[in-house]
C-alpha cells in the first residue's frame, strides 16, 4: 500500500484549529522539523500538543508557542524554554505535566487498544490527585489512561513507500509509540526508499501504523547541549 505524499502541505492536510496532535522527539532530537515549520505556516490555533518536551524558544515546538498556536501542552519536561514558562505562569497556556514513563506508556496504550493501566510512578504526588489507587504486590499504583491524537507526527531516519520506519540512535524515543496512537499518523523521513529496500528484520515501526509518509526537505538537527571531550 503506497503511503507516499509528495509534500509537507499534502502530509498535513486536514489539521485544523482545536485538534490534538502528538509530536515525536526528545528535546530537539528526533523531532519532525519540517512538519512543525508547516504548522507555523498554516497558523492552526488552539492545539493540544502531546510531546515529551516543548522545544526551545526559537526551535521545535517553541516556534508554535511563539505564535500562540498551542492551547494546551501535555509533556514530562519543559525546561529550557522561557516563552513556555512565561505563558504557563501567566495562565495563557494550559499544561499537563506527567511522568515520562507514564507518558510513553499512555501513548503506547492508546495505540495498542488498552484504555488504562496501573503504574507506581507518581503515587503520593500531585500527579496522583483524582486518580484511582490500587495495591498490587503490597505496593500502591495509580490508574493512568491511554492517550490518542487526531494526528501523530513522527520523524524517522529511513522509511519506505509502505510506511515502514527505521529510526536512528536516540532519535527513536517517543516516535514509535506516537506513530501507533495517531488516528492519522504522518511520518517525515530523511531517506524515502521503494518497498523492499529495507530489511524486514530491522523495521522499528511497521507501516500499518503510518498513513502518510514524505521525505523532509531539510533537516537542521539542532543540538541542544553540545558536549565534547578533548583529544589527548
Amino acid at each position: 500500500m503506497n503511503k507516499v505524499v509528495n509534500s509537507v502541505e499534502e502530509a498535513l492536510d486536514g489539521i485544523q484549529d482545536g485538534m490534538t496532535l502528538m509530536l515525536g522527539g526528545f528535546g530537539l532530537c528526533g523531532i519532525p522539523e519540517n512538519s512543525i515549520a508547516q504548522l507555523v505556516k498554516l497558523g492552526v490555533k488552539d492545539l493540544t500538543c502531546i510531546s515529551n518536551n516543548a522545544g526551545v524558544d526559537d526551535f521545535g515546538l517553541g516556534l508554535l508557542l511563539q505564535g500562540k498556536q498551542i492551547k494546551k501542552m501535555i509533556s514530562s519536561y519543559v525546561g529550557e524554554n522561557d516563552e513556555f514558562e512565561r505563558q504557563m505562569l501567566s495562565g495563557e497556556l494550559e499544561v499537563d505535566l506527567i511522568p515520562q514513563g507514564s507518558l510513553a506508556e499512555r501513548c503506547r496504550a492508546g495505540g495498542a487498544g488498552i484504555p488504562a493501566f496501573f503504574t507506581p510512578a507518581g503515587y503520593g504526588t500531585e500527579v496522583a490527585e483524582g486518580k484511582e489507587v490500587r495495591i498490587f504486590n503490597g505496593k500502591p499504583h495509580i490508574l493512568e489512561s491511554a492517550l490518542t491524537a487526531d494526528f501523530a507526527i513522527v520523524k524517522a531516519w529511513k522509511g519506505d513507500t509502505e510506511g515502514n520506519l527505521i529510526f536512528k540512535a536516540t532519535a527513536r524515543n517517543f516516535n514509535p509509540m506516537m506513530a501507533m496512537a495517531g488516528k492519522i499518523t504522518i511520518a517525515e523521513v530523511e531517506e524515502l526508499v521503494p518497498a523492499g529496500e529495507l530489511d524486514p528484520n530491522f523495521i522499528h515501526t511497521p507501516g500499518i501504523f503510518v498513513q502518510r509518509i514524505f521525505k523532509g526537505e531539510k533537516f537542521e538537527k539542532r543540538i541542544e547541549q553540545r558536549t565534547v571531550r578533548q583529544r589527548n
Binding site: 505562569l89 499544561v95 505535566l97 511522568p99 514513563g101 510512578a121
Partner: peptide, 14 residues
C-alpha cells in the same frame, strides 16, 4: 520554577 518531572517519578517509584 516548573520544569517538570521528566523520568524522575518513574525512576524513584520503581
Amino acid at each position: 520554577m516548573v520544569k517538570g518531572m521528566g523520568g524522575a517519578m518513574d525512576l524513584v517509584a520503581s
